[in-house]
Each structure stands twice: as structure tokens, then as C-alpha cells.
Design a protein around this nucleic acid. Sequence first.
DNA 1: ACCTGAACACCGTTCAAGT
DNA 2: ACCTGAACACCGTTCAAGT
Lengths: 232, 232
Amino acid sequence: MTTESEPRTESRIPLSKERVLRAAVELADRAGLESLTMRNLAHEVGVEAMSLYYHVANKEAVLDGVVDVIVGEINEVVGSIDGPTPEDDWKSALRVRILAARDVMLAHPWAPDVIEQRTHMSPAIVLYFEGLLGIFREGGFSYDLAHHAMHALGSKALGFSQELFNPGNEESDQSGEMLEQFAEQLPHLTGMLMEIGHDDPDSTLGWCDDQAEFEFSLDLLLDGLDRLLHAA
Amino acid sequence: MTTESEPRTESRIPLSKERVLRAAVELADRAGLESLTMRNLAHEVGVEAMSLYYHVANKEAVLDGVVDVIVGEINEVVGSIDGPTPEDDWKSALRVRILAARDVMLAHPWAPDVIEQRTHMSPAIVLYFEGLLGIFREGGFSYDLAHHAMHALGSKALGFSQELFNPGNEESDQSGEMLEQFAEQLPHLTGMLMEIGHDDPDSTLGWCDDQAEFEFSLDLLLDGLDRLLHAA
DNA sequence: ACCTGAACACCGTTCAAGT
DNA sequence: ACCTGAACACCGTTCAAGT
């Protein structure tokens, strides 16, 4: 609109891959992942869609880059943590690192989706995993056990755990109706829901992946790994 | 092509939601999830794309239905398992069930992707979870601990674990080059790869999710849950 | 060097119309 | 009741062309 009238410092400097990627993160933060189209992204930086292709190869490159930005944030955050050293307490060292990564993810709830869609690791993730591996090693893990541990952590290593279903959306949720209609056929589920009332108001990552469940699963894995470590 | 000439028993009977969904599964099995478009699916059942909308509401309904078909398969398979009873050995009972579910998933490697995209549970999945909960309960779990356990299992409850990255695709894999170029900056990763040589030829579900890693993670969780059960 | 307009090949979907 | 043709509103992307 006002592209010509007032040279607003930033819109004057030519586009760059970095500015495209930062705009992509902001767009997804504000309007959701489904809004992250090449056309919307172009409009976001005040340019036509086709101009983006001068700075990025294609949309896959945008998504790869966006993951790199987010995990770059994580690497920055975990770089300035001063908790217990891995030699003293590998479990705590790993735990604070993962929960710090989770904080970044909570600020970008769409990020887990795009990370899981990626087919190869970004450089930032390689760096992050190198750091995790370092903690395992300094904690006394063999490469073999550390390798298993990384697999067992899965997405929890990066601070999220993609739960299978989204609890919200009452109108489109068949499971609620099903539970009412077939309560007698589903004794355990109805019993469980009556007892624990699965309406945690703080489903932090959009899924049923709230903080308490995340930490329960994380500690279950860390404790199990610790036992394997000392059994060896 | 030969729609008029020879009335091949099946192409004569009118379309139904069931036939559409079965065709969708076959199409995805044969050509991959990205080939599962409304136009392709219509062609698959010998009809124009718009005709599908007479039998299903939209593509989301197709994907929901397809999940229901797959998990229906699982429910059939696990229904005819005669392993140890949960009262005797809940861990083994759960384990064989989950590994049976995994066998079905291995026959439909695209299924995890579409399951994770769903926003609500299908009836078949509600039934499957009811069965899992029953095993926990008969094994002596409180509803509260069983609930945590279901969350901790996550997608492993259904027999898959979406790993973060796909090991294949040498040409598009930045991590390989990165490891070579920056080997000295990544001592732990290079050390690990040299020791364990992460080239398992049998990456069963397309990701680095091979059978050994799946079972390692599953047993780590089951053993941890068993300890919590007996600690209570 | 950087950006654009027009166009292409796809999507999912609506709607009025055919039998 | 069941299916269709034409059309719409979107995608990502190519390519020749502008400055």
C-alpha cells in the first residue's frame, strides 16, 4: 500500500533468505501453519509470490529454514543454562535442557507439525543432538546405550510429544458422543473419565500434551535409562 | 474404459462409502499417501471426482474413514490373540497386542502419517483404547496410573513411533555432509556413528523406526510402568 | 541483481443439471 | 437415487520479461 510514500527503513533493504524465514515464523505464529503459503508469505514481506523464489528454492526450503530458525532459538537458550554438570547428574542436566527446548516449542505451537514433516535433519538439529549426546556420554553412557536413548526419547528430545488426538472441538468429536451412547460397552474408558475428569484446562501444545503428562513420560524414560546405565 | 462392455460383477453394484474407503486404502498402499486425491480415488472406483461427494462429506471424511478401516483391521487381529492373561502378566499381554498392531501398521506404512493428522478419535480407536485400558486395569493399575501410561505410550500404543527424521535420501541429506565437513565440531555424533554404523538395512516403517528400536523403547516404558505399579 | 505478470498444472469443492 | 460437466477459489511453480 504505502510502499512508495514513506521509505520505512526495513522495507527499503532488499529481501534476503533470513528475512523471508523470520517473516515465515511470524506468519505461522500469528495465523497458523495453514496460512503459511507462498502467496501469503510474499505479501507479508511486501513482495509478489514469485519473488520469493529468488531467495529460496521452493516451499520445502522455507519449511526447512523455519525449523532451523526455531531450533536455532533452542540452541541459543540451552547454551546459556547453568544447571548441574552431566558428570554430577546427567538426568537433571538433560531434563533442564529438554524443558528449555519445550519452552521454545510452546511459543511456536505449530513447530512440531512442521518438524515431523521434515525428511532430513537441519544443521541446527544436528548441533542440538550433538549436545544431547554429549550429556549422555559425560553421564557415563556407552555410544550404544546413548543411541537407544535418543531413539527412545524421540520427539521428547526436542521438547514436544505429538499426542494422537486433539481434545478440543466438541462439535466434531465423535468420541464424546460415543462414550455417552455406548457407555456400557466402554466400561474402562467411562470409569477412567469419571474418576480423573480429563478436562485439564491447560493443554499447552494444542494437543492433550500438557506439561504434567510430558514430564511424567520424560521422567519415566530418564529413570528407566538410569537403571540401564547402572545395570551395565 | 470397459465400463459398458462387460458387466464385471463388482463395477455394476453402485458405489458405497465402504467401497470408497477400501479403494482409498488400496490406492495409498500402492501409490503412497500423496496419490490419495479425490480425483485419483474417483478414477480408482471408475467414477468422476464429484460423485464421491455423494458418499462421503469431503476429503477429511475419507481420511477419517481410512483410519477407521486400518484400526478396524487391528481390532480384528488383536481380538484373536491368545497370549497370557493380563491378570497373570499384563506386560506380556500388552506387548503382544501392541506388536500385533504394529504388524498391521507395517502393512500400511502411510497410516501413521494420516493418523497423526487426525484431530479426533475414530470409533475404532476408542474401542482399541478401551481394550488397552482393560489390560492395565486387569493388571492392577489404578485409573490414574493407567491414564498416565496411555499418554506415555503415545503412538506406540498403536504400534508405531514417528521418528523425527528419515534416514534415506542421501542426496538431500544435509546431515551426512555436515558430519563429514564438521567432524571435529561433532565429536560425539561422529564417534557414535563410527561405533555403531547406523546403517540398519531394515528400516521397517520408512523412518529410522526399526523393530529393535521400537521394542527397546516399548520395553523401557513397560518396565518403568511395572516398577511404578509395584511401588504404589 | 532483484523483482514481476501471465500462465500452467494441480488441488478440494459447489452447484445446477442430467438419467 | 445416483452420477456428471463446468466452474470456482485456491495451491506451488516455471518462464520470459521487466528494471
